[in-house]
Design a binder for these strands. Structure first.
Lengths: 183, 183
DNA sequence: AGCCGACATGTCAACTTCAACATGTCTGTC
DNA sequence: GACAGACATGTTGAAGTTGACATGTCGGCT
């Protein structure tokens, strides 16, 4: 359902679009939030047209089909945004790795965390560039800001975890006791 | 692959376990990070045993099978943690909604954000309880801390967005101009 | 003895997603 | 005229995920 909502929203915001256009937009700023490749988009557009949410407005050269949103599509989007409660299920590989950190020997854990830190910094720089490029009033501004704040949180967490691991190392060296922790 | 890693890690950390045990643990703190139901876990355990990553250590009453990790399993887990780069693809419905906020009339957007704020606060309280319950040295402590920091980031973002929307409303009332934004 | 709830494991059909395969057009340049 | 690169839309098979269906055991309570 989220793919439908995303497609409806992109058409609502950007006006009539082809599958090709939409694929490009999925590769842009939306990629930080949701992904879909053309092999998912084209069939979905056909299904949505069959369901009356979209209408093929024009067929151009090279087989180009331009879809526009119908009243039913607009109402579906509205309903999804306002009446569907957000899917709470998360599947976050980064967080999963975080969960498993205590399984690693300290040095390896630290390596992993430093790697994560580098990665987060790089991504943050990327987003910050995007942020200043698109300016204050871009369509994606809210999502961008959200992504940025989450990256900062990830960075703070990695720093906290590194410090914590280093402290516990010192403690261990002093007392020669190895606490194990429980699940 | 992540499911395999998670199962290997749970057995490595918690000792020999049955599918039932593992299902329960997936419903616990791990649920904030990764989900899997028994219908996914049981077949995967069988496959992993066939692949030599696990060994059926004992068969108890009620058909209970206790799996323990093998050397191959341990090495697979280690390799996944250290040598597989984290999957960068994200699919975040909350962020998708954030992306779409500019599509809504201000009042509805504000409603959505306030709802989000309530939800984040509730979740945060939940995690904070968990955090103090499990104490400092729990296996899931790092993931918990990460989750908490991300929730705080979500909260700050929602507050920022609400304020921004209200400000732009004032600006609009003053100038009677409606900026639209671009994708 | 009967029943309930927790324990315990499985299958199956439907759906989503992805990478790879497949085809063809238009535009500009060498 | 040949070729490259962007434009444009599809299909297919494999893998991951879910909810529903299905089956049976054990312990404790009435």
């Amino acid at each position: 359902m989220s793919l439908r909502a995303a497609l409806l929203a992109l058409i609502e915001a950007g006006g009539p679009s082809s599958g090709y256009d939409l694929t490009k937009r999925f590769e842009g700023s939306l990629a930080y939030v949701w992904q879909a490749s053309h092999s998912q988009i084209y069939p979905e557009l056909n299904r949505m047209a069959a369901d009356g949410l979209l209408r093929v407005e024009a067929e151009g050269s090279r087989g180009r089909k331009t879809y526009s949103i119908t009243a039913a599509g607009r109402s579906e989007l509205h309903q999804w945004l306002l009446e569907t409660k957000p899917e709470q299920r998360v599947r976050n590989e980064g967080a999963l790795r975080a969960f498993l950190i205590p399984l690693l020997p300290r040095e390896e854990a630290l390596g992993l965390l430093r790697e994560e830190l580098r990665h987060v910094e790089a991504r943050r720089a990327e987003l910050e560039t995007l942020c200043s490029d698109v300016g204050e009033s871009s369509f994606g501004r809210y999502a961008l800001e959200r992504g940025l704040r989450h990256l900062v949180a990830s960075r703070e967490w990695a720093l906290w975890a590194i410090e914590r691991l280093q402290k516990s190392e010192e403690a261990r060296t002093e007392t020669a006791r190895t606490p194990t922790g429980e699940l």
